[in-house]
């Protein structure tokens, strides 16, 4: 994974929190964050290059995948392009969950919206992708991505911080903004309506 700093963010926030507060960030992970990575390759190749993911994890855990909102059945034929949105989820309950599962028994029941292979001339190169992590995938991969740093919209981050209860803030040990120490309660007052923020969260 390339350094996102070269691509998009304007502000860097480093938070050090109690380990049991890491799960509080799942909402942000579900809203999506931007990463720089190799694009123009298959979804499987793309995923295998991400931290914390390997072929076995993808095969066993990541049972539901959307590329630009379309359920993907074959990760080895779907190609990810610059600017794409990729959402990763575990297997889901309900008939709808079974229908959306990749290559599942009910895939025909949503064939109208399924990802269909396109003829693509793009070659493999560096680009940006919006990644969304849901449910068990967010719980398991979230700490890895947060530790490395995720680029989120300032608007989403402001809204997220405003909703956090007192208990969350009491678990925040230290905050740095662009390398400078910041009082924790200042985060709640930040107005990031237009900026992108590189958020790193370490647990202790």
């Amino acid at each position: 994974m390339e350094n996102e700093k070269d691509h998009i963010q304007t502000v860097e926030i480093l938070m050090t929190v109690k380990s049991d507060r890491i799960s509080s960030f799942t909402q942000l992970l579900g809203q999506g964050f931007t990463i720089g990575a190799r694009v123009g390759c298959t979804v499987m190749e793309f995923l295998c290059n991400l931290p914390g993911l390997d072929f076995n994890y993808i095969e066993q855990r990541v049972q539901t995948i959307f590329l630009n909102g379309k359920p993907v059945d074959d990760l080895n034929s779907a190609v990810i392009l610059d600017g794409a949105t990729l959402a990763l989820s575990a297997a889901m309950p309900g008939l709808a969950g079974a229908i959306l599962r990749r290559g599942g028994s009910y895939a025909s029941m949503r064939h109208q919206i399924s990802y269909k292979k396109e003829l693509i001339s793009d070659s493999v190169r560096e680009g940006c992708v919006v990644l969304k992590l849901f449910n068990l995938v967010a719980r398991e991969l979230g700490p890895i991505f947060l530790n490395h740093g995720i680029c989120v919209s300032g608007e989403n981050l402001s809204g997220f911080f405003r909703k956090m209860p007192e208990d969350f803030w009491s678990g925040c040990r230290k905050v740095k903004k662009d390398g400078q120490t910041l009082e924790v309660n200042k985060l709640m007052q930040m107005d990031w309506q237009t900026e992108n923020v590189l958020l790193k969260v370490h647990s202790r």
């Binding site: 579900g30 539901t64 959307f66 909102g69 359920p71 959402a87 989820s89 889901m92 309950p93 309900g94 709808a96 969950g97 959306l100 949503r110 919206i113 969304k132 849901f134 449910n135 068990l136 719980r139």
Partner: peptide, 16 residues
């Protein structure tokens, strides 16, 4: 872990 509401994000992503 998440109850049946685990579906909201996924169904939303599917545009359904």
């Amino acid at each position: 872990g998440f109850g049946t509401n685990i579906l909201t994000n996924v169904i939303n992503e599917a545009g359904a």
